[in-house]
Computed example of a mutant assay.
Amino acid sequence: MILRSTLSAYRAAQVVVVIGVLMASLFVASYSIALGRPMPNHIPTAVVGDRKPYAALINTLQQQVDGALEFHPYPSRAAPEAAMKRQTMKAALILGPQPPLLLVSSAASAPVAGVLTAAVERVGEALAPHAAAPLHAVDIRPLPDTDPQGLIGFYVTFAATFLGFSIMFNLRAHEPRMSPRSWLAFIAVLGIVGGLALTVIADLMIGALRGPFLEIWAAAAAQIVVTALFTSTMIVLLGRWAIVPAWLLFTAVGNPSAGGAVSAPILPAVYAFFGHYLPTGATVAVIHNATYFHDARHPEPIVVQLLWLVGSLAALLISIRALHWTPVSDSDDVADIAVR
């Protein structure tokens, strides 16, 4: 009997080690592909003026960014600046009698602005190494000194994700008799209190993320709640193995595709696509837009957040009702814990 128990524990430990190594390996691979080697990819760029006289300049600029600039003609400089304000354009090439300008926006995407500014410098070295620069980069909406890389919103989202993810597993371990109604009430309180704490720290205490307080609070709270609801659903369905899908969705894929550390135009296409529809990417976008583009908000990330919120809650309630399990029970102890 003792030998059988020891062998069983040994096999269980082997499974845990194998899964842990696979998860860590996927983490390294995913982050390295998405964030370690960012490459320009489909950068919508407005262009004003006749391109023919500047063909050599444009070709050289495209060479520096691997042909990633997607040009859209505009009639005047004011029009692309308005488009950049709405974030439909990430840059604007202004051609005319004066030296050409490439308008960038660090507030829209610091990584994209950095890539394009570096490309402009290389264009000058290639075309006029001993003369005046043939192209100048102008940042029309720079980031503040409190958030020079535009990463604070991503950090708040990351913390909110970690909070919703980790607290659910701790709650399952330490409160094994909590009813579904109490569990849901706990998630609601966690979202409100956790979102408030993160917003107070980032905004009021250290002044790193200065934006509409209530909007940032709501976005952080929504991320905590969505993460907690999804993790709870996985706990109901998979028990102790719930960490695998929750970790994959929010850590291995959600974080690198969120557009926080590396924005969509320089992410691999697959990550850029999923980033628009995953909760982490939506939360990063909501916080970023509220902070730096409050005069031109986009409804899409808010809609994505709401869909994940409603969908995760529905999935949890359906799972509990169908399987008669609570988030704190699994197949080993269903008989001992009644759904109250």
Rank of each mutant, 00 (worst) to 15 (best):
M1H: 13
I2E: 12
R4M: 15
T6F: 12
Q14M: 15
V15L: 09
V17R: 10
V17W: 06
F27Y: 12
V28P: 08
A29M: 03
Y31D: 06
L35C: 06
P38W: 14
M39D: 12
M39T: 15
T45A: 06
V48L: 05
K52H: 11
P53Y: 03
A56K: 09
Q64H: 09
D66L: 15
A68K: 08
L69F: 00
E70Y: 05
Y74R: 15
K85H: 06
T88F: 09
A92S: 12
G96A: 05
L101T: 06
S106R: 12
S106I: 15
A107R: 14
A107E: 12
A108F: 15
A108L: 15
A110Q: 14
P111F: 13
A113L: 09
G114T: 05
T117F: 10
A118F: 03
A118W: 08
A119R: 05
A119I: 03
E121I: 08
V123F: 04
A126F: 03
L135G: 07
H136Y: 04
H136C: 01
H136P: 00
I140Q: 07
I140T: 07
P144M: 04
T146C: 02
D147A: 13
G150N: 13
L151T: 15
F154M: 06
Y155E: 13
Y155Q: 12
Y155I: 14
Y155N: 13
Y155T: 11
G164Q: 05
G164K: 00
F169L: 13
L171Y: 08
L184I: 02
F186P: 06
V189E: 02
I192F: 08
I192Q: 08
L196I: 09
A197W: 03
A197L: 11
A202M: 00
A202P: 04
D203A: 09
M205P: 04
A208G: 01
L209D: 07
I216E: 01
A218F: 10
A219T: 01
A221N: 02
A221Q: 00
A222Y: 00
F230A: 03
S232F: 07
L237H: 08
R240E: 14
R240D: 14
R240P: 10
V244T: 01
P245M: 12
P245D: 10
W247A: 12
L248H: 09
L248W: 12
A252L: 14
N255E: 13
A258C: 08
A258N: 03
S263K: 12
P265G: 07
I266P: 02
P268V: 02
P268D: 07
P268Q: 05
P268F: 05
A269R: 04
A272L: 08
F274E: 01
G275F: 12
L278E: 15
P279W: 00
A282K: 03
N289H: 13
D295I: 08
A296K: 02
R297I: 09
H298L: 12
E300T: 14
V303I: 08
V304I: 06
W308P: 01
L316V: 01
L317Q: 05
L317K: 09
I320P: 10
W325T: 12
W325P: 00
P327Y: 04
D330K: 02
D332F: 11
V334D: 10
A335C: 03
A335L: 10
D336Q: 13
A338Q: 11
